[in-house]
Simulated scan of single mutants.
Amino acid sequence: MTWSPVTMRWPAQATEWMGQLSAAQGLAGGELASTAKRLADLNGKTSTSPGPVGGAAGGAIAAGRAALADQMGEAPACLVVTPFQSGIGQGRGYQRFLSAPNLLQQMAGKLVDVSDTGRPDGPQFALCLMFLATRFDQLANSLARFNALLPMPDLVRTERRARHLSKLETEKWEIPAAGTLPRWQALPLERCTVVKAAQQSMAGQLAVLESYAADSSPMADLAALAGRKAAQQQGRDQQLADLKALLADGNPDSSMRARLIGPGNATELRQALLAGDAPGHEWVLCAGALLVGSEKGLSFVRELVGL
């Protein structure tokens, strides 16, 4: 066996199938011109008639939009406190901790922090959420259940960091198997300039022909559109039904605590937040969210958390 010199050339045998496209491409060009002429001839000869659904649904649409704006239009002020925020948690390095009483103190202090320009003012209600845990995996699981329904950016980041820290604690004792080098891997053809340009050109020609192969009559297109609209409506109804079923008959989650206080100004809300029995220092790894707004603005979240 001898080593042959490398000669870069176009793979003519591998792409000889492209010659079979020329007849179809010529037919496609003629069909395009014929279709344009037929559409021009139909101008002014056809008309459409809207169905009765639009007029009948007008009142329901207006009422639904008004109810949705009334329910969701007023966004409450939100404060999220996590142990990973700068100056909040205790500990060194990546290991940060925040007990439940200290969490309440942090949220109560932000209610009367006059240096924060975003602090809500005036008589309002406050909804306090606490996520209690003693380990990083517990905190991540608790936040994951809440973020699946009402994600908040700070809580999502806290969930990810707690998940990574829990994984680090588990995997740092594992010794990976490196294996022997070199290893088999796929040839990265997508990085080859010639292959990339050829693939784009051939894929473009195939896409043009596929558009003609998928051609159908206008009546068939309208029937397919009606079918898709019906399927979309059924899908939306099923999605809402699944969400209601998921939230129906839920079991109490001891790792999440919620409380509604108010009405009152910032000082009164702070006093009410610190009053009463609260989780103790045995919960060493906690996060919380404080929502402040009107009773109507908090109604959706309040009902979502079971208050």
Rank of each mutant, 00 (worst) to 15 (best):
V208I: 12
G179I: 06
A178V: 15
R161E: 06
L304F: 13
S34V: 04
D137F: 05
V284T: 15
C192V: 11
L247S: 05
S22Q: 11
T158I: 02
N265C: 02
Q124G: 01
L155Q: 08
A63K: 07
G44A: 03
Q232Y: 12
G306H: 06
L32T: 07
N102T: 03
T82I: 07
L181Q: 11
V114K: 15
Q124I: 00
V194I: 01
C192F: 02
T2Y: 08
N43P: 00
S255E: 06
Q233K: 14
G280R: 04
Q105C: 07
A198K: 01
R135D: 10
L222H: 09
P218N: 07
A258F: 08
L139D: 07
P101V: 09
P263E: 10
S255F: 06
P218A: 02
Q20F: 05
T158K: 01
L127M: 12
R236Y: 08
V208D: 06
S4Y: 03
T158D: 04
G250E: 13
Q233W: 06
Q13W: 05
A77R: 12
T82E: 03
T82S: 15
S255D: 12
A224S: 14
A289K: 05
V112F: 01
A144D: 13
R236L: 14
S299C: 01
Q90E: 14
V156F: 07
R135T: 15
L240R: 14
A63M: 03
Q124H: 08
L291Q: 11
L206S: 07
G93W: 08
R135Y: 03
M72P: 00
T134V: 11
L111N: 09
P252R: 09
A245E: 11
A177P: 01
V81L: 13
K172V: 13
L209K: 02
A203Y: 01
L21C: 02
Q106V: 10
G262K: 11
D242Y: 00
F97M: 15
N102P: 00
Q239T: 10
H281P: 12
P5Y: 05
T15Q: 08
L246V: 01
G59D: 12
T267D: 14
G19R: 06
P218K: 04
Q200R: 09
Q205S: 09
R96N: 02
A278N: 11
D215L: 15
V301W: 12
A69H: 13
L168T: 12
S254C: 03
K167D: 12
A75S: 13
D41M: 09
A275Q: 11
Q95L: 07
D237S: 10
V194F: 03
G118L: 08
P101R: 07
A198L: 14
N102M: 13
